[in-house]
Computed example of a mutant assay.
Amino acid sequence: MPSPQQARAQASAISSGRAAVPEAEFSPTSRLRTLFDRPRLSPGQRRIAQYLIEHLTEAAFLSITDLAERVGVSQPSVTRFASAVGFSGYPALRERLQSIALGGRGGTPAEESGNELQAAVDAEIENLENLRRDFADPGPVVEVGRKLAASTPLTVLGLRISVSLAEYFAYAARRVHPDVRLVTRGGSVAYDALLQSREAGGTWVLAFSLPRHAQETLGAVRVARGAGLKVALITDLALGPIADEADVAFATGTGSRLVFDSYAAPGVMCAALLQAMTDADPERTQARLEEYEQIAEQHQFFLRD
Rank of each mutant, 00 (worst) to 15 (best):
S3Y: 04
Q6Y: 02
A11S: 09
S15C: 05
S15P: 00
E23Q: 09
E23K: 06
R33I: 12
L35T: 11
D37K: 11
Q45L: 03
Q45D: 11
R47N: 03
R47L: 07
R47T: 06
A49S: 13
I53G: 02
T57Y: 05
E58T: 14
F61P: 00
F61M: 05
L62Y: 14
S63N: 11
A68W: 08
G72Y: 15
Q75I: 15
P76W: 12
V78W: 13
V78E: 12
V78H: 14
T79N: 14
R80I: 11
F81P: 05
V85I: 14
G89E: 13
A92W: 07
L97T: 08
L97S: 09
Q98C: 03
I100G: 08
L102Y: 02
G104M: 09
G107E: 07
P109F: 09
A110Q: 14
E116I: 15
A119V: 13
A123S: 12
I125W: 08
N127K: 05
L128R: 06
E129S: 12
E129Q: 15
R133F: 09
D137E: 09
V142P: 00
V142K: 00
L148I: 07
A149D: 01
L154D: 10
V156K: 00
V156R: 01
V156W: 01
L157A: 00
A166V: 08
A166Y: 04
A166E: 08
Y168K: 15
A172G: 08
A173T: 10
D179W: 08
L182C: 02
G186R: 03
G186S: 07
S188R: 14
S188D: 12
V189Q: 04
V189A: 08
D192G: 04
L194Y: 01
Q196D: 11
S197E: 02
E199I: 00
E199A: 11
A200G: 02
G201I: 05
W204P: 02
W204T: 00
F208I: 01
S209K: 02
R212S: 06
H213S: 09
A214W: 02
E216Y: 05
V221E: 00
V221M: 00
R222M: 08
R225H: 06
G226L: 01
V231C: 07
V231N: 05
L239T: 14
A243H: 12
A243I: 10
D244F: 14
E245Y: 05
V248A: 00
G255F: 09
G255T: 09
R257E: 14
R257L: 09
D261A: 09
D261K: 01
P266T: 05
G267I: 05
M269K: 08
A272V: 09
A276P: 02
D279V: 01
A280G: 04
P282Q: 07
P282S: 06
R284F: 03
A287W: 03
R288G: 07
L289F: 09
Q294K: 15
A296Q: 10
E297M: 10
Q300V: 09
Q300A: 13
F301Q: 03
L303Y: 04
